[in-house]
Design a protein around this nucleic acid. Structure first.
Length: 422
RNA sequence: GGAGGAGUGCCCGAGUGGCUAAAGGGGGCGGACUGUAAAUCCGCUGGCUAAGCCUACGUUGGUUCGAAUCCAACCUCCUCCA
């Protein structure tokens, strides 16, 4: 598509120059025209998130970073929470229908997502980013009215040509009308935002291309509006895996699903080869600084990784949490746990009730099950207060906790915890 | 509508009556080496109140002392024919 990371000299708008140089652009419906529009004045742009989980994860950071840049450069972001579309389920590139979500679940998920958005974008004031829920208009439609107003602008022929549904059709897996109409709903969202807020740009993941195109086309056919679509690339790590999955699961943005400390550690553990790319995509350091850090060699790259981790954590969890995570990490890895805030807290009664080492490993999240913890211990990967413990029957006793009622626990070389009983 | 083939653990993929919690590979985790990196080598990789027990080879039944393996029905996918 569009070469990422290369400054585009012929572009007039600062916004596109920055996005391109950061590597945040994958495809655009009309790069030149969008460039002209962005150069001419403030543009309102939106990105939507369905309520499929109680928290966003690092994959969502790409469109969110794009929105941050746009806001920073004088444009206006709108974030659409998919309270309406989540009731349908996006079939894009999936071979099976998503399980339908209950209203209650959707509401809970939206609350969790909202929290991260509020951190990532500035919602204050006249020019602040706006948060809207598409249930607001989608639930108002009456069926016949909807079909007459919008159905005429979509042809099934065209809808079936999108890659996002083709694999499902090719595999002869059922694609229900419910799911098939998802792209219509997203298209209507775009038009609705154009009407209500003069929004003319939609940003999304590369899997959203088909849905975005539908909106752009609806805008043109429906009322002659020129709308734009921009997708961000799908990020894979140097080893080829989809980014953001760890043994413990997704890398969540919500602090209750993944602690800022663990979040910071995720970035700290970036492979060497990914450091330049991640600095560009996930931090807002000036490019000359990004380049300087990217050129560091060997062990020196560790400094760049720390900066990367602290920068991203600052954006997602705030400066205070980031500084804290950095300090916790430094102290834990240096083996100086004194005067340190715990990474985990457990009630003191747990000790009296009798707490096994395996149970503790599961509680802290270093193992997914008792058996998993057992294997970890038997493999010699567990340290309790810096001493290897390979007996899976080991119990935690008051003798293990120091003056501060805390103990340190490590699983392997990179996962460390300071657990306080209180 | 007819004929044939296939459905195995996170993924790919062997396995045609007991020795199969299921070969091999990938991925993941741990150990050694390092720099909380990569590469390499080694180990582990269903659950539990753990020398025992439970769950598992598309689903449900059946045959058998014993089934991922045999039989029946059903579901799904693939190929060929109409």
């Amino acid at each position: 598509m569009i070469e990422a990371g290369k400054p585009a000299a012929k572009l007039k708008s600062e916004a596109l120059q920055v996005l391109l140089e950061r590597g945040l652009v994958h495809q655009c419906t009309d790069l030149e025209a969008l460039d002209a529009k962005l150069a001419a004045g403030p543009v309102t742009a939106y990105a939507g998130f369905d309520a499929t989980a109680a928290s966003l994860h690092v994959g969502h950071l790409m469109p969110l970073m794009t929105m941050r840049w746009l806001q920073k450069l004088g444009h206006k972001p709108i974030i659409v929470l998919g309270g309406g579309t989540s009731q349908v389920g996006d079939p894009s590139f999936r071979n099976e229908a998503r399980p339908l979500l209950e209203q209650q679940q959707i509401a809970a998920n939206i609350a969790g997502i909202r929290r991260s958005i509020e951190r990532l974008l500035d919602l204050e004031g006249e020019d602040g980013a706006q948060l809207v829920d598409n249930a607001e208009w989608l639930t108002e439609f009456r069926f016949l009215e909807f079909l007459r107003d919008y159905g005429a602008h979509f042809t099934v022929n065209r809808m079936m040509t999108f890659d996002s549904v083709k694999s499902r059709l090719d595999a002869q897996m059922p694609l229900t009308v419910l799911e098939f109409c998802y792209m219509m709903l997203q298209a209507v969202d775009f038009l609705e935002l154009a009407r209500r807020h003069d929004c003319s740009l939609q940003v999304g993941g590369s899997d959203q291309w088909g849905n975005i195109i539908n909106g752009v086309e609806l805008g043109r056919k429906g009322e002659g509006r020129q709308l734009f679509g921009l997708t961000v690339p799908l990020i894979t790590t140097a080893s080829g895996a989809k980014m953001g999955k760890t043994a413990a699961g997704a890398v969540w943005l919500h602090p209750e699903h993944l602690s800022p400390f663990a979040f910071w550690q995720f970035w700290r553990n970036t492979a060497d080869a990914d450091v330049p790319k991640f600095l560009r995509l996930f931090t807002e350091l000036p490019m000359n600084e990004v380049i300087r850090l990217s050129e560091l060699q060997g062990a020196e790259l560790n400094e760049a990784k720390k900066i990367l981790a602290t920068q991203v954590t600052t954006i997602v969890h705030g400066a205070e949490a980031a500084r804290h995570a950095l300090e916790q990490g430094d102290a834990l890895f240096a083996g100086q746990a004194d005067n340190l805030e715990p990474t985990h807290r457990l009630p003191l009664v747990r000790l009296a009730e009798g707490l096994g080492l395996l149970e503790l490993l599961v509680d802290v999240g270093f193992a997914t099950s008792n058996g998993d913890a057992r294997r970890l211990v038997e493999g010699g990967g567990v340290r309790l207060n810096s001493k290897v413990v390979d007996d899976p029957r080991r119990r935690i006793s008051s003798g293990d906790i120091g003056a501060k009622d805390a103990l340190t626990l490590a699983a392997g070389k990179r996962r460390k915890a300071l657990v306080r009983f209180e």
